[in-house]
Design a binder for these strands. Structure first.
Lengths: 205, 205
DNA sequence: GTCTATATGCAGATAGAC
DNA sequence: GTCTATCTGCATATAGAC
């Protein structure tokens, strides 16, 4: 997992990310992180002062990887259809490569929601672009009588749920076969876009 | 929150549930739980021996409340339509009353998946009834070319996501208005069933 | 059963040599 | 920058009085 070319700080971030994601802020031990990074425990404090600051650094690195990419997909000059196709396929691609990110983000959602909300609001036009895009829903231009937040919740729920519930879902419905579950995940983009298409314009069927 | 009629053991379970749900197993402090229950810290150990055993007891009490009710809705003698309507509305009713349960369950999903899977498999016919019900999907009798697990993931994702993401979703899309979000949640049953109806039988539109 | 006081262990953090 | 050794505080857990 670790690149020999990484400097110490990067090695720590990489290792800490794995441990924090697996165990959470409270569950992780600095010793574990040090072991994982193959350095000494004291070095963690030398670089990041405290466990909490290290956690913050790791979390920021993670969302700084996600949000700019995600944000760029939400282009209000495109149609909702196009954007949706872009987002859903990006999401699934990103999540297949970073399957533990949702867990991580949900931890922050519950522990530091205000801080996270502030961060997201600071993302250039992120929220306003979403609102712009979902206007057709509010205006009743596409076939649904519900507010656009339902639309967003539906899409995000369908995208993220299989990653969040993997340990149990894979055991119960895939006889705990990793490969089968990976295959299942790879099909999600198509499935979700299909749902979306049936939803927004059933009259075209 | 606490009923004066509760005996000590029940008071502890009630208090511990609130604290564990809010802070997680590692984040919760026995002192906090004792304070919440308005008893002494030592009593926690008198009744439950250790923090972990207390957590297990609390978690078991929670899922023992959920699963029998949920399981009873999954009646394979009914049609998929009927069952779906029953489940989605039960889910949302249950989650409105127990909004923190998903968080709690997802903690266990990641920390002790095997244990949780075993528990669910032990629920009388739970899995086999689900498989029975989703057979029409596998057999292609309803209009979808995807395996039934996608169907389950879609429904569960749409049901659970708004509860899991509440702290951030409410802030970003509801100006942090509790009441508006409660209203939003109360609309979910209808929205999800509507999606489901469009999905399974678009030709009837 | 319920309390106060105490023991025990461990994790985060620091000091200081190299 | 990196290490070993050490300190400090705190959370779980126990002992023992009532």
């Amino acid at each position: 997992m670790q690149n020999k070319e990484q400097n110490t700080e990067e090695k720590i971030i990489t290792a800490a990310k794995e441990i924090f994601i697996e165990k959470g802020l409270q569950g992780a031990r600095m010793q574990e992180i040090a072991d994982q990074a193959k350095i000494n425990k004291a070095l963690l404090h030398y670089y990041f002062r405290s466990k909490e600051k290290l956690f913050d650094a790791v979390f920021e690195a993670s969302i700084n990887d996600l949000f700019p990419k995600l944000s760029s997909k939400i282009d209000p000059s495109k149609s909702l259809d196009e954007v949706m196709a872009g987002i859903v396929s990006f999401y699934n691609k990103f999540l297949i490569e970073n399957p533990f990110i949702p867990q991580f983000i949900f931890h922050e959602i519950w522990q530091h929601p205000e801080k996270l909300a502030r961060f997201i609001r600071e993302q250039n036009n992120f929220i306003s672009n979403i609102n712009e895009l979902t206007k057709p829903i509010e205006l009743g231009e596409i076939k649904t009588e519900y507010k656009s937040q339902h639309f967003i919740a539906n899409i995000l729920g369908m995208c993220i749920f299989p990653y969040l519930s993997r340990p149990i879902f894979q055991r119960l419905f895939f006889e705990n076969q990793e490969d089968d579950y990976d295959q299942f995940l790879s099909e999600r983009t198509e499935v979700i876009l299909n749902v979306f298409n049936q939803l927004s314009k059933p009259e075209k069927k």
